[in-house]
Computed example of a mutant assay.
Amino acid sequence: MSVLPALLPADPHTPFPPVEQALRHPDGLLAVGGDLTPTRLLNAYRHGIFPWYSKGQPILWWSPDPRAVFRTDGVRLSSKFRRGLRHCDWTVRADSAFAQVIEACAHIPRPGQRGTWIIKDMIQAYQRMHELGHAHSFEVFADGRLIGGIYGIAVGRMFFGESMFSAQSGGSKVALAALARHLYDWGWPLIDAQVENEHLVSLGAERWPRRPFLDAVEGLVDQPGLVGPWTQRVGDWPACRLAEPGTG
């Protein structure tokens, strides 16, 4: 039985083990322990590693192979869905409701899933990352009500998606597509989606072997990014624009 490398919480600068040492079963499990300080989290994402664990477990760190990845010009919305957006009055914003988005992602019921991995410690850690300008959310509003959203971590020109939710049909699709549209316009080519599922694949997620993914990440995280709130940069963006030809 393999023994996982243990990270010491006293030193968030401790390097992660090489991702090639990650287990095959369960796929991508790399290390255990450590902490969720901004220093450690940024170090993890820069190397294509993310935390994922449940209540009662120690912090577990992952780098799966293959990886689910969206090209920002490759998010797919069906023709029927696009047509429905033409006269839609939904509004998209960024970083205006981060706490509500992460709480919704933590608590919204999901088919086949019991409980949540977005536990209190994770919420607090990513809220801190948001306050420091590294974690961001895209939110979808209808008549002033939050109906969908997505959040993740930005490092350089790489966006690492964490979770998304819908409180109304199509809310998460619009959040993802709007995020992709804006990132594409800013010159950011990829969104990490971590582990594939049928829903992500239906929206255009691709399966990338770990090494090409990490090579792409390495070339993007050192480029000039956008640290700080994205609220004014995005403004009140009409979701109906996703019905136009182009990204999303």
Rank of each mutant, 00 (worst) to 15 (best):
W117E: 06
G74P: 02
H47M: 07
H130W: 10
L176D: 06
Y184Q: 14
D236L: 13
G219K: 06
A125H: 01
D185A: 14
D65F: 05
C105S: 11
D215F: 14
L214W: 05
A99H: 14
G248S: 09
V101Q: 06
L220Y: 00
E196L: 15
W62A: 09
P238C: 01
S163R: 06
F98M: 02
P17A: 14
I119M: 05
A178D: 04
G228R: 12
L226N: 10
R76N: 04
Q113A: 13
D89G: 02
P224F: 15
M129W: 05
D185W: 07
P209R: 13
I191W: 02
C105Y: 10
Q21S: 12
A216P: 00
P18K: 01
L36D: 06
D121P: 04
W188V: 14
H134T: 06
S163G: 01
L179P: 03
V217Y: 11
V32P: 01
L220C: 05
R67N: 07
N197V: 12
G148P: 02
Q113T: 13
S169C: 09
Q21Y: 00
S79M: 04
I153P: 01
R233C: 10
A205T: 10
L77E: 09
F50M: 08
F159A: 00
L7G: 06
M122Y: 15
Q232S: 11
G248P: 00
C240I: 00
P38G: 09
L77G: 14
E103Q: 13
P64T: 05
S79D: 12
T231H: 10
A135H: 10
R241W: 09
A177P: 00
T231D: 08
W90Q: 07
L214P: 01
L36E: 01
P38E: 15
R24M: 03
M164V: 14
Q21P: 00
L190Q: 03
D27G: 08
V69F: 13
L36H: 10
L183G: 12
S137Q: 01
G112T: 04
P51A: 08
S63Q: 03
H13V: 03
E20P: 00
G48F: 15
R110N: 06
I102A: 04
G133E: 15
L23Y: 03
A180L: 10
P18A: 11
M129K: 06
I102L: 10
T91C: 14
L41T: 12
A94G: 08
E162R: 01
L8P: 01
H199F: 15
R40W: 07
A216I: 12
Y53E: 14
A142C: 13
P212S: 11
G84H: 08
R24A: 14
P229I: 08
K173G: 02
L183N: 08
G48E: 04
P15D: 15
P66D: 05
P111Y: 08
H134P: 02
K80W: 05
Q127D: 12
W90M: 10
S96A: 12
G33W: 05
S2M: 06
Y184S: 13
L29A: 09
E196D: 08
G34E: 01
W61V: 03
D215E: 15
D192Y: 03
G28P: 00
A104K: 06
L41F: 07
L176H: 01
Q124S: 13
R157S: 09
P9H: 09
W208M: 08
V32K: 06
V140Y: 04
P66I: 03
L85R: 15
K55A: 13
L226H: 07
V101I: 11
H47S: 11
A31R: 00
Q127M: 15
V195N: 03
S172H: 07
L36T: 02
